[in-house]
Design a protein around this nucleic acid. Structure first.
Length: 466
RNA sequence: GGCUGGGUGGCAGAGUGGUGAUGCAGCGGACUGCAACUCCGUUAACGCCGGUUCGAUUCCGACCCCAGCCUCCA
């Protein structure tokens, strides 16, 4: 028995994770709507659930991880109209960009990355089932889910139907039987994207795509469903209602997991507020690994204050791990430790992750492993400690570069290439040998000016870019 | 207003009924020609007020403050 504990939004508590089928764990995570470049807040669930998947894969023989992309949405339509681009092209372009961006963050692609527009048939048939079972009705070209028909509605987001009426910001439309009813299908005008359906040409509402794609790719009941905390209501509440009512199975999702929001300033990072930082722009200045470290530096359910200082600290912390690994003839990366059994990973890191994915504690464990490596007395102890650190790095999706790559990899903007640097180091060595310390220091200062720091040791001088 | 979650050292961020993580930064020392790297040591915290307790940052209650959701949102 693997004792992984996860906080389940449904119960509001940490629960022991017991998969429905221990031979096959099923995970679904909500991806973004692709109408522009995604921001780092969108990267958080990608990184968090990637880390969870790494843990699950080492604990269970088979894990199917599905993460969708919403490529049909009115915001996409609007963005396309504004840019004079076809909706299809725009969505395809930003889908591709999103996949690149999360790869930058060290995310292993999900097993299945379904697109809403590829599942119209499944969506239509699920809506039909809901109509047949009288949970949904047709009205003025729309199909609506009738919220009061589902006695369990509100169980996920913990709100009563009365609360929602009080909130009173639900869209009231005269074609709705109840103000809380939400759209499963809506009519499209000729210039809007649409598909033929029993209710005329139209397009799906937001929530139904996930219900349909989960069912198609994972089945009627799944183990884990993840996503941002801001999706709990209404998206996941509605999705759960649809699936519960359309499927024969009573259980839709056994464990609902929600990651907290990133904040920028004192406010949630959000496109509608306008305070976003795209992964694309951040990765101009910071490595994807630094961004990932920063994302993992907070426990996933807490909100995390994004700032330049956070990134500076993440970079320094990451450098310290890589510094531990540095050494001649040691260019192994964490990928050498991919997909091992759980017992093969350092237990301090595993224990932290098994406790509701406590990544800050896991990182603390990594630093302890790093310190142990730096202090190791002999070659055997060093090799053992190095392996432990790299293995832990795999679980967290870190240390995927060799130490030398990490410290010396440059780009076209750098004023000096490795060859020039090595030549200057040799000149400095000569100067020091000649007792010309002023000359030697001048070279070191010049290099520092160019962003190159030297580290002397008995084995010679090595260098790193700042 | 309702429903969640939270307030820990300069910063980030774990955790615990009594020995007070971890990282970044700081300080002292070792190493070094001097530095950097590294090592050793070290400063410093638990929103506020009550209660329970031999003892609370950790449990209970009130209060203050913050964030999220209640509309599109990761």
């Amino acid at each position: 028995m693997t004792d992984i504990y996860l906080h389940n939004t449904l119960s509001g508590q940490k629960e022991r994770f017991i998969p429905m089928d221990p031979d096959h764990v099923r995970v679904y995570v909500c991806g973004p709507t692709v109408y522009s470049y995604v921001h780092i807040g969108n990267g958080r669930p990608a990184v968090v659930f990637d880390t969870l998947t790494r843990l699950l894969r080492s604990a269970y023989p088979r894990v199917t991880y599905v993460s969708n992309i919403t490529d049909i949405d009115d915001k996409i339509n609007a963005a396309a109209a504004e840019g004079g681009e076809s909706i299809k092209d725009l969505a395809a372009r930003y889908t591709e960009a999103y996949l690149q961006d999360i790869q930058t963050l060290g995310v292993i692609p999900a097993d299945v990355i379904p697109l809403a527009t590829h599942h119209i048939q499944e969506i239509v048939s699920m809506i039909n089932e809901l109509i047949d079972a009288e949970f949904a009705y047709v009205s003025a070209g729309h199909v609506l889910f009738h919220v009061p028909a589902d006695p369990e509605y509100g169980s996920l987001s913990k709100r009563s139907l009365e609360d929602m009426v009080d909130g009173a910001r639900v869209e009231v439309a005269d074609y709705k039987k109840d103000p809380k009813d939400f759209v499963l299908w809506k009519p499209s005008s000729p210039e809007q994207p649409g598909w033929d359906s029993p209710w005329g040409r139209g397009r799906p509402g937001w929530h139904i795509e996930c219900s349909a794609m989960v069912k198609k790719h994972l089945g009627e009941t799944i183990d884990i469903h993840g996503g941002g905390a801001d999706l709990t209501f209404p998206h996941h509440e509605n999705e759960a209602a649809q699936s519960r009512c359309a499927n024969a199975s009573k259980d839709y999702v056994r464990y609902w997991l929600h990651n907290g929001m990133l904040t920028l300033g004192s406010e949630k990072m959000s496109k509608s507020v306008g305070n976003v930082m795209t992964i694309r722009s951040l990765s101009q200045k910071h490595s994807g690994e630094t961004l990932r470290y920063a994302l993992l530096s907070g426990q996933y359910r807490s909100s995390l204050a994004w700032s330049e200082d956070l990134l500076v600290q993440a970079k320094s912390s990451l450098d310290s791990l890589y510094q531990s690994l540095r050494g001649k003839d040691h260019q192994e990366t964490s990928s050498a430790y991919a997909n091992l059994a759980l017992g093969a990973y350092p237990q301090s890191v595993v224990t932290a992750l098994k406790d509701d994915l406590n990544t800050p504690r896991a990182l603390a464990a990594m630093h302890e492993l790093g310190a142990a490596l730096r202090r190791a007395e002999d070659e055997e102890a060093r090799n053992q400690a190095r392996s432990a650190l790299l293995a832990g790095g795999w679980l967290l999706g870190l240390l995927g570069q060799s130490p030398d790559e990490h410290f010396t990899a440059g780009d076209a903007q750098d004023s000096l290439d490795a060859q020039q640097i090595e030549a200057l180091i040799e000149a400095r060595r000569q100067a020091r040998a000649d007792g010309d310390y002023a000359g030697a220091d001048r070279i070191r200062d010049d290099l520092a000016e160019a962003g190159i720091e030297l580290e002397d040791s008995r084995d010679g001088t090595r260098w790193r870019r700042r």
